[in-house]
Structures are given as structure tokens and as C-alpha cells.
Design a protein around this nucleic acid. Structure first.
Lengths: 340, 340
DNA sequence: CTGAAAGCGCTTACAG
DNA sequence: CTGAAAGCGCTTACAG
């Protein structure tokens, strides 16, 4: 490809002048500008982003570290939101192949070596060392679903506490008192917040929290199945269960039906996320809606603001959550033996 | 961050020597090597990938152009396969924000300006101008699901013809003679191939091809619904329908049930892809299995081979497809009026 | 308004 | 085995 030197020679000016017209400096005469423009046209010249980045320190690239499979519908939708916000912004997206378990690996070095202008992080445990590193660094960063703040670090998440709280209230309103919770892997902010929402929900309904009604899973379908299995093995299984994700909820329902029970006839189930599948699954899922696409898009908008304006103070954003009621929840079944 | 100069000064050698130990040149004495190593350690030095790329012409970055939403489960799984193959390869992945509809936009320039070592392309129409540009360029390229070949251009796909062919044969074996096909947007290789499989399948079963039994959709759930609606409006609706994607198949089933019919009681439906949801949907989907993860991973493996070895001849790969029989297909219903 | 020169952080012949 | 020098393709003071 043609370089800036070729253009300069073609136009009969210096490379400095070419650089100035490329970068829209005002102090270039119209005549010169025209000559340069047509030379650029003629040679189909495009500035080399790499070389430019080396001297300006800007790469027009934002990195993304997502430590969860892309096949997870939440991740897919998040990425789609990120992609949308990036379109026409001039920035491209780089997915970092981070070696998180390798002690000698430094995420910061990785970013700096790539000259990244900023990064968005999702799915890294709250106490992983790279979080501290990121806070100390001056790389503009947005965390999704992890409550980290810093000089150049903001975060965005849904109102997880209230989300689960609404789910519990909904079930209470249907007469349920034995409400279990299938949590996400603890150690992540979201998981903790939702668990908190569960406990507060119970408390506000004057229901005693019972350890046996708490199971943990990895947000997946299989995880939901396994957790549900344990709950069904209980002496007195719950009549309703709130799940930390729609995938887990679908897994739980699958398990319930495998035992010969029905949803919501015997057990009511609530999901979390409101992914596309929640609508299509049978029974369709009552679930907590998160505006995932929006979370992705806004994380990028704020990241770009931070990149382009050093004074921009990193935001801490909580998107509202809402309850979507469908077919997987219903009135509690009046049990034959009124044991409780 | 420390630069190679800092390391050279710290170690008391020249930058050339530091460069040599970084790049594992043999002609460095053990003593010098050690001095340099500890200086690197001390200063936590990491070579700047950008600067290195400027001189070597390598960026250790492969680009991906995916013109279909990430929320499409096929795309998500493809990306996951790509990601897996990239792990520990030293390469990072860049998603290009391509302005495909902008006449003045050049994908090649974009790649060259970013110094990309290679690209994988998915979801671009067969006759889009960038395909020709790519073939003429010397950027190593792998197309997924598009039958393009070139000097530095290979492709990978599933055996689409045979996939649909198997679906048709399966339905024929169940007694179906009125078999419709919901195709993907024509103009893409996959869509054409699968349509070909449909027609061949019919021919091999001595069933006449009828235009009215062909509908086109965009692979989505909604697309499947709309296409199915048209088929149901027909004078004599089909007793079975093969769909170009699982999402479309689920949409079709949704529509069939909305009309008060049952699957497979009244209409049998076959999908394509075998995404996760196909197993979980009710009724679970009979579908053509594609090893999507594998397609993603292999596209990268071959791309890297092409990058690292200019002699490596671009592969043209066809992964086998197989039919997975589940609950959405069944014996044809013997109709009251034996009109046909 | 224009251009010569230094420099971003590296690598690569080449000379010694 | 080691290092001085040129160069990758740009931008940015600075002098004129």
C-alpha cells in the first residue's frame, strides 16, 4: 500500500504537510490541500493505523475480556450491544486471549502492548488480581456486572437486588412460602447481589431463610438441572424456585418434568435475564428482564467518553430490572397434608 | 512502560542485543543473555506489539468479519470455536466494524491499515464486491460457508447438500410426500446448496418439485413463523417441512401450534444446525447436525497455517453433516380424504 | 503556510 | 558475540 512518502512525492510536498491535511489541520493553503487530496485519491492512500498509533499512543481499538463462553445467550447479547455502539465510532473491537490462570501473565501488559485505548471486562471474579491491576492502571475500563470503581474505572449492571426481590414477592403473592433459590457461582458481584435480593425478599415476606433452599450453579442449563435435582431430593421440596439465569431455569424445569412433576402445577420457576429463549421455551418463563443489549451499548458509550475526555468521571450505572410474568409460575398447590 | 532502551541501559548492552535475546537469537553469549533477562525481569519489560508489528509487518492479530448478529446461536458457537483455537496461539482476535454498504469503504484498506495477519469472513453475500477484493489481495483469508477459493483464500463449510438430502429422505421414509422447504436468503452459498439438497432429495424420492412449497426466510424464529404461515395458507398445505435453520424450525413449529395443529401429529418439521436449543425445545427438534464449533476452530487453524507458511495451499473443507432424529418428525397422518 | 528533523519502540542487515 | 545505523509509517514541535 502507498505510504505517506509516496503521497508527498506525488503531490510535491513534504510528508509533514500530507500529515496535516490528513489530520485536518487548518494551516494548509487550499491549493496545497487540493494537490494532496488528489494524490491521496490517485494512490488510494490510507494512513497506517499501526504507525499512527505508535506515535499518538491511540490505537482506536477497545479491548474486551469476556471470561464466559460466547454461546451463553447473555454474552452474545452483550456483545451485540457492544458491537452496535462501536459501529461508526471509528473504533474496532479486540477480544483478548487472556491467560488468566497463568501467574506470569499480566493483563495490563497485554493491553499496553496492544496500545488499547480502553477495555470492557465481564465475568472475572471479584477478587482476581487483574481487577486490582486495572484499578491502579490508567487504562479506561468499564466493568459489566462487577462493582468496581476507580480513577479511570466505571461499571454498569442491572438492579440485581430488586430483580430477585420482585421474583420472590411475585411468588409470595401466589401463595408460595417454600421458595428456593438457585444462585450463580458466588464470588461474582451479580451472584452476591441476587442472593441478597432473595434474602431481602424473604425477609420482607416474613419468610425465614433456610440454607437447604439455597443451591449454587454455573448459570447453565446443566447447572440448573443438577441444582434442581438436589432440591427435589429434599424431605420437603420447595413449591417454587427462583433461578439466577434463564438457562438454569430451563434446566430446572427440565429436571422437574423428568421427575414427573409439572411446571407450574407442582413447582413454579422464575428465571433471570429474559433471553430470547425464555419466550419460546415451554412453559414460557416468568423471568426478570435485563436490558442486556443496552448494557453492552452503554458500557461502550461511557468507555469512549472516558477515552476521549480524561476529565470524564467514570460512571456507576444501575439499569432497572423488571419482572415479566409468563407461564412458569402459578398459584401454589394446596397440598393434601397441611404439614406447614 | 519500560522500553527496549531502558532494558538496554539497565543491562549495559545495546538495544540490538536486547532484541536478540527477546527473539531467541542463538548468537548471544550466556552471560549477556542473563544480564538482559534480569533487566527485563527487573523492569517488567514487555515488547510493544505495535512497534514490533510496524517493522515486521506481523500484528499477531486475525480479523473477523461477521455480518450476522452475535445473538444468532450459530454465530455464537462459531465464535466460540474460533476463540478456542486462538487460545495460546499468541494471536488476538479483532472484530472489524466494516461499513459494507458504504461505497467508499474498502475492507482491504481496513485490514492493511490494521496490519491484520489474516481474516475469517462469514455471512457476506456471494457477490459482494469485497469478496473479489479479498481474492485479489494477498491477505490470508478463510471463508466460512461461502465457496470462494483463491491464491490465499480457502473456505470451510458443512456438507449442506447432503444434510438437507438426508432430511428429505427421512421424511420420505415416514411416508411424507408433500414436503415443503423453508430456505435461507438466496444469494448466500449455504442457502443455494441446501436448496439444491432439497431438490435432489425430492428427485431421488421421485417427488415432483413444486414452487409453492418453497419459502424463503432470514434464518430467524420470526422468519420461520412468517414462512410457515404462508405454507399453511396453501390450498393443500405440506405434511412436512424442512427448515434452513433450527431457529426457523422453532418459529415454524410455533406457528403450526398457533393454528391449532400439532407437531409432529399434523406436520413434521426438520431443522438445520443442531444448536443447543434444538434439544431443549418442545418438541425437541429432528435436525441436521453441523459441527459448528469445529468449523470455527478449524478455520483458524488453517488460517494460521496460511499466515505462517506462504506455501501452504488454501484448503477447501467440507465437514460431514448428520441427521439427528428427535421428536419433531413422525409418520405422515393418513388423511380422511385421500385426495392425493 | 511549509518543511527538516526528531522520535514513537521496535528489528534487521551489516561491520567489526 | 556485539553494536551502530537505517528504517517501518507516521506525528509533532520548531524554525523559517
Amino acid at each position: 500500500m502507498a505510504s505517506i512518502h509516496d503521497v508527498a512525492k506525488e503531490a510535491g510536498v513534504s510528508v509533514a504537510t500530507v500529515s496535516k491535511v490528513i489530520n485536518h489541520y487548518p494551516d494548509v493553503s487550499d491549493k496545497t490541500r487540493k494537490k494532496v487530496r488528489s494524490a491521496i485519491e490517485l494512490l488510494r492512500y490510507r494512513p497506517n493505523a499501526i504507525a499512527r498509533g505508535l506515535v499518538t499512543g491511540r490505537s482506536w481499538t477497545v479491548g474486551v475480556l469476556i471470561n464466559i463462553p460466547f454461546t451463553n445467550p447473555y454474552v452474545a447479547e452483550l456483545l451485540e450491544g457492544i458491537k452496535t455502539a462501536l459501529e461508526n465510532s471509528g473504533y474496532d473491537l479486540m477480544r483478548l486471549s487472556a491467560r488468566l490462570n497463568d501467574e506470569s501473565y499480566s493483563f495490563i501488559d497485554h493491553c499496553e502492548s496492544r496500545n488499547l485505548d480502553g477495555v470492557v471486562i465481564f465475568g472475572v471474579e471479584r477478587d482476581h488480581r487483574i481487577i486490582g491491576e486495572l484499578i491502579r492502571s490508567d487504562i479506561p475500563t468499564m466493568f459489566v456486572d462487577t462493582d468496581v470503581m476507580g480513577n479511570r474505572v466505571g461499571n454498569i449492571t442491572s438492579d440485581n437486588v430488586n430483580g430477585v426481590h420482585m421474583a420472590v414477592s411475585h411468588l409470595y403473592g401466589l401463595g408460595h412460602r417454600d421458595i428456593a433459590y438457585i444462585a450463580g457461582t458466588l464470588g461474582h458481584t451479580v451472584a452476591e447481589r441476587r442472593l441478597q435480593g432473595y434474602k431481602q425478599g424473604l425477609a420482607d415476606c416474613s419468610i425465614e431463610y433456610r440454607d437447604k433452599y439455597l443451591e449454587v450453579c454455573d448459570y447453565s442449563f446443566e447447572g440448573g438441572m443438577v441444582a434442581m435435582r438436589k432440591l427435589l431430593h429434599l424431605q420437603s421440596p420447595p413449591t417454587a424456585v427462583v433461578c439466577t439465569s434463564d438457562m438454569a431455569a430451563m434446566g430446572a424445569i427440565h429436571e422437574i418434568e423428568a421427575w414427573g412433576f409439572s411446571v407450574p402445577g407442582d413447582v413454579s420457576v422464575v428465571g433471570f435475564d429474559n433471553i430470547f429463549e425464555a419466550k419460546v421455551f415451554k412453559p414460557s418463563l416468568t423471568t426478570v428482564n435485563q436490558n442486556i443489549h443496552n448494557i453492552g451499548a452503554r458500557s461502550i458509550e461511557h468507555l469512549i467518553s472516558m477515552i476521549e475526555n480524561p476529565e470524564y468521571s467514570p460512571p456507576e450505572i444501575m439499569e432497572p430490572a423488571s419482572l415479566v410474568i409468563r407461564q412458569s409460575t402459578g398459584k401454589v398447590k394446596v397440598s393434601e397434608d397441611q404439614s406447614r
